[in-house]
C-alpha cells in the first residue's frame, strides 16, 4: 500500500485518459453513485464475462471496504455447471454475499408456468428477478448490459427507471445529462444501472486481458458435440439433445456469451486465450448476439419487447 507505483500508463498521453482507463473511471463513478444514492442495491452476477468485469470494477470502486451491495444471480437451472461453479468460487474469493434465486422457485410458486417442459426458460427470468427485487426490497439492480449489444439497448439510459411492474417504457425515459444520474424512486419502483453501457465487446475483452481476469473455461476453445441449425451451432447437452434427424458433429468451439443453455450457441473457434479471442473479436463479421443468441432472431423487435416486460 505504501509503495509509490507509477500512475496508469495512459496519463502519459496529452489527450487525457486512454480509452480503457476512461471507461473504467466512468464505470467506477457510476457504481459509487449507486452506493451514494440507493438504499438497497444489488449487483447481478451470473458468472458471465460482463458481470466478471463488473466485479473487478466494484473492487476498484469500493476496496478496502466490502461492496455496499450483495451479488444476485437469477438461475434458470439451465446453466453450464462450469459457470455455476465459477460463480460460487468467485463470490467466495471476494468474500461477498451471493444471493441465488431460481426459476424452479417461481415455478413451484406458480408464478412461472412453462408452455412445455422444453420451452426456453430465458424469458421467464424476468419473473424471478422481479420476485427477488420484491423479496429483498432492492431499489437498484446493477447489470452488465452494454449498448452495443442490440438496437433497443442503444437507447437505454445508464440509470434506467422501472415502474412497479418492472417495466421499461422506452418512449418515456428520464433524460440523462452530463454525469448527473437520477436514481430516485418511489417504493416498489426500481432502477436498473448499467455501468458498462459505453463498452463494446472488444473493450470488455481488452479489459479482461489488461486486468488478467479469470473466466469460466467454456469461454475458451474446447471440443463440444453440436448440431448445425441454420447459421448457428446448437450445443448437444442432456437439456438440448439432438433430434432424430440431426447430424451431431464434434467441433472446436467457444462461447462468446454465456447464458441459458437452451438459447446460447457457441461459435467455431480455435482461440484458447484472451489474446486469441481479442484477435477474433477485432476481426469478426458477426455481432455478439447475432452469432450466439437463438432467442433474438424471432423478430426485429424481440429485445425491445422483452425489455418492456421487465427483462434485463
Amino acid at each position: 500500500m505504501t509503495a509509490r507505483l507509477p500512475e496508469p500508463q495512459a496519463l502519459a498521453s496529452r489527450h487525457g485518459l486512454g480509452h480503457l482507463d476512461w471507461l473504467e473511471a466512468e464505470a467506477i463513478h457510476i457504481l459509487r453513485e449507486v452506493a451514494g444514492q440507493c438504499a438497497t442495491p444489488a449487483l447481478l452476477f451470473s458468472g458471465g464475462k460482463d458481470s466478471i468485469v463488473l466485479l473487478r470494477l466494484a473492487e476498484k470502486a469500493f476496496r478496502p471496504a466490502r461492496f455496499p451491495f450483495p451479488l444476485l444471480h437469477i438461475d434458470t437451472g439451465h446453466n453450464y455447471p462450469e459457470v455455476i461453479a465459477f460463480r460460487d468460487r468467485r463470490a467466495a474469493e471476494l468474500g461477498e454475499r451471493l444471493i441465488v434465486r431460481t426459476l424452479e422457485q417461481s415455478m413451484a410458486r406458480g408464478s412461472v408456468v412453462l408452455k412445455s417442459p422444453g420451452e426456453s426458460r430465458n424469458k421467464h427470468q424476468s419473473v424471478t428477478l422481479l420476485e427477488a427485487i420484491e423479496e429483498f426490497g432492492f431499489d437498484a439492480c446493477i447489470g452488465g448490459a452494454r449498448r452495443d449489444e442490440e438496437k433497443a439497448r442503444a437507447k437505454e439510459r445508464v440509470f434506467s427507471f422501472r415502474d412497479g411492474f418492472g417495466q421499461w417504457d422506452p418512449k418515456n425515459q428520464r433524460p440523462e445529462l452530463w454525469n448527473l444520474y437520477n436514481a430516485r424512486v418511489h417504493p416498489g419502483e426500481n432502477i436498473r444501472v448499467f455501468p458498462i453501457s459505453n463498452w463494446t465487446e472488444l473493450d470488455v475483452w481488452q479489459y479482461i486481458e489488461r486486468e488478467g481476469l479469470e473466466l469460466p473455461s467454456i469461454y475458451f476453445a474446447h471440443a463440444r458435440p453440436v448440431v448445425r441449425k441454420g447459421d448457428l451451432l446448437r450445443p448437444v447437452t442432456p437439456l438440448t439433445p439432438a433430434g432424430s434427424g440431426d447430424a451431431v458433429e464434434t467441433l472446436t468451439v467457444r462461447f462468446r456469451t454465456v447464458g441459458d443453455i437452451t438459447c446460447t450457441a457457441p461459435v467455431s473457434s480455435l482461440a484458447d486465450s484472451v489474446a486469441g479471442i481479442i484477435e477474433e473479436t477485432a476481426t469478426t463479421t458477426l455481432t455478439e448476439r447475432g452469432a450466439t443468441r437463438l432467442d433474438d432472431q424471432t423478430s426485429e423487435a424481440s429485445m425491445e419487447q422483452r425489455k418492456k416486460e421487465g427483462y434485463f
Partner: peptide, 13 residues
C-alpha cells in the same frame, strides 16, 4: 486499486 498514486488528473475516479 490498492495502490498509492503521486497525483491524479481530471476524469480519474
Amino acid at each position: 486499486d490498492g495502490r498509492s498514486l503521486r497525483r491524479a488528473v481530471a476524469e480519474q475516479s
